[in-house]
């Protein structure tokens, strides 16, 4: 113990080597589990496209779904008006729906809506606060379309599949 500091440090490092390896293993397993559960959670919590029961569609193509949220359509084939409901831009479900279902970064939708809003030419969606309001508004507005997490869906609205 002539050089206690030096000696101790060596001892610590030697002792730490196997422990670090084990820790890495444990962390790998843990993060794997976490990541898996995140994926699974994301999967089960996925936002679904919903519509008022009056909407005469059971499924739409990806591009048709995008066209709805780009506000390119104003009425259904039977002539009834289309109303689009969305959550606020920074709502996690909005981002999730945009990215996973429409496969668009949310800024793309915002850009189209802002162009309509600030030019006085074109429609913009109506913004709701949360899943509950989304369900209520879509259920009570003929021709309405929106999105909501799977668990919140009730019999007042229909789910529309994106092919």
């Amino acid at each position: 113990m002539t050089f206690p500091k030096y000696g101790n440090r060596l001892a610590i490092r030697q002792a730490a080597e196997p422990a670090t390896f084990q820790k890495v293993l444990v962390r790998l397993v843990l993060s794997g589990l976490l990541f898996g559960s995140f994926l699974w959670g994301g999967f089960t919590q996925a936002a679904e496209l919903i519509a008022n029961p009056s909407v005469p569609l059971k499924s739409v193509t990806l591009n048709e779904a995008r066209a709805l949220f780009y506000m390119r359509n104003s009425e259904w084939p039977d002539g009834s008006p289309i109303t689009i409901f969305v959550l606020k831009d920074d709502n996690p479900f909005h981002r999730q729906f945009s990215k996973q279902k429409l496969r668009l970064f949310p800024y793309r939708l915002r850009r189209v809506w802002d162009r309509h809003l600030f030019s006085g030419a074109g429609r913009i969606p109506e913004v709701v606060e949360n899943s509950r309001e989304m369900i209520n508004r879509v259920a009570s507005t003929p021709g309405a379309v929106g999105y909501v997490d799977k668990e919140s869906i009730d019999e007042g609205v229909q789910t529309i599949e994106i092919r």
């Binding site: 002539g79 850009r111 162009r115 600030f118 030019s119 030419a121």
Partner: peptide, 30 residues
Amino acid sequence: SWEDGEWGLRLGRVKNPMGLYNETRDVAFT
């Protein structure tokens, strides 16, 4: 309107469509 389109009129003071940005040129967010 018809199945794949619509047409209409906007009357009053309308923004001029010129390039990608003219109609919203005074709005920083665009």
